[in-house]
């Protein structure tokens, strides 16, 4: 077990190291940020000042080493555009993304898993077919387009919910949140719905496939032969068995929800990290891009690690000393 853990940690470290190189070299190749930072009519003196201030005149290797050294200290540099420390900038945008992502994932699970179980339990019923048809839509229609339809329907036509922005926030534990007030929640609802639909479709499919497999299994038949009620069969047998694949994919999908938040935040003008990264790509705000990519990679590595460990905890067959 310890060996497995060490092996995994080493792998994770290697991935992180590789990613910082790729990110740094890649981002450096994008274009010349000086052109963005300095108006074309600036004097030579101002140009030289800016270049010196951001260390853009030093060799690439030196810049990279300085960059890694700073990363380790948690210093991601200053944003070219906002002229504040990047760490601070990202941290200030993080709560907005966090509450959006969590609400989306929570909603998708609470709705998607029961729907999927139902569709797997009664695969031939019209309701199940409707659920599966809808899940194909949620799977294949681009997120931004669904967001547009949501705005058109609920904000423009019905005027039930605001079309964008975060609304009023209330400070809780020193962090501003939207979900604590009714109006903030109203602002949160549409973007969260938009973000959750893909996940919802995915969870429906996963839960359906797992349920279908379990329902056709001998152990469910045996459980029924002992007189277990259908509810007990689903709660005791099916749920426990589909938990394994769902937790796995779910963990991995948490990261991709962050990725899709980029799109959703742009459509709904949600001031989170996703909107920040899009803006920084447009403005060639290099330190922000780098920090975002490194953080996302870090998040992925951590999630992968956790999923590996949880998987072992959930499936007794994979536990150490489990040889039959």
């Amino acid at each position: 077990m310890l060996g497995f853990l060490i092996n995994r940690l080493l792998q994770a470290a290697a991935v992180m190291a590789a990613m910082t190189v790729i990110v740094f070299v890649g981002v450096h190749a994008i274009g010349n940020p000086i052109d963005v930072l300095i108006p074309p009519d600036a004097t030579q003196q101002i140009r030289a000042d800016v270049i010196a201030r951001y260390g853009l005149d030093r060799p690439l290797v030196e810049q990279y080493l300085a960059f890694v050294g700073n990363l380790v200290r948690g210093d991601f540099g200053r944003s070219f555009v906002f002229n504040v420390p990047v760490a601070e900038l990202i941290l200030s945008r993080l709560p907005a993304t966090a509450e959006l992502t969590l609400l989306a994932v929570l909603g998708a699970s609470l709705l998607g898993i029961p729907l999927g179980i139902y569709a797997g339990y009664r695969p031939r019923s019209p309701v199940s077919r409707a659920i599966m048809g809808a899940s194909i839509l949620g799977f294949s229609v681009p997120t931004f387009w669904i967001g547009l339809i949501l705005i058109l329907t609920f904000a423009v036509e019905l005027r039930w919910l605001p079309a964008g922005g975060r609304g009023p926030t209330a400070v809780l534990l020193g962090v501003p949140w939207s979900f604590t007030s009714g109006e903030g929640l109203a602002h949160l609802l549409l973007p969260a719905l938009n973000l959750s639909l893909f996940k919802l479709a995915l969870l429906i499919r996963l839960a359906r496939a797992g349920t279908r497999e379990a329902m056709l299994s001998d152990y469910v038949r045996f459980a029924r032969a002992q007189g277990l009620s259908e509810l007990t069969v689903i709660r005791g047998h099916v749920l426990k068995n589909i938990a394994i694949p769902i937790v796995t994919v779910f963990g991995l999908e948490l990261g991709s929800t962050l990725a899709f938040a980029v799109v959703t935040e742009t459509i709904f003008s949600w001031p989170g990290v996703g909107k920040l990264i899009i803006d920084s790509i447009r403005d060639l705000d290099r330190p922000v891009m780098v920090a975002y990519l490194v953080l996302v990679t870090f998040l992925f590595v951590v999630i992968n690690l956790v999923v590996d460990l949880v998987y072992g905890a959930l499936d007794p067959r994979l536990r150490p000393g489990a040889a039959g």
């Binding site: 001998d218 045996f222 029924r224 032969a225 007189g227 005791g236």
Partner: peptide
């Protein structure tokens, strides 16, 4: 009645017990 008055044993013992319980 199932399990209480009339019970059944299946063919393949590898499959009749739930592996995760």
């Amino acid at each position: 009645l199932r399990g209480r008055r009339i019970a059944m044993v299946f063919q393949d013992p590898m499959m009749t017990l739930n592996p995760v319980l």
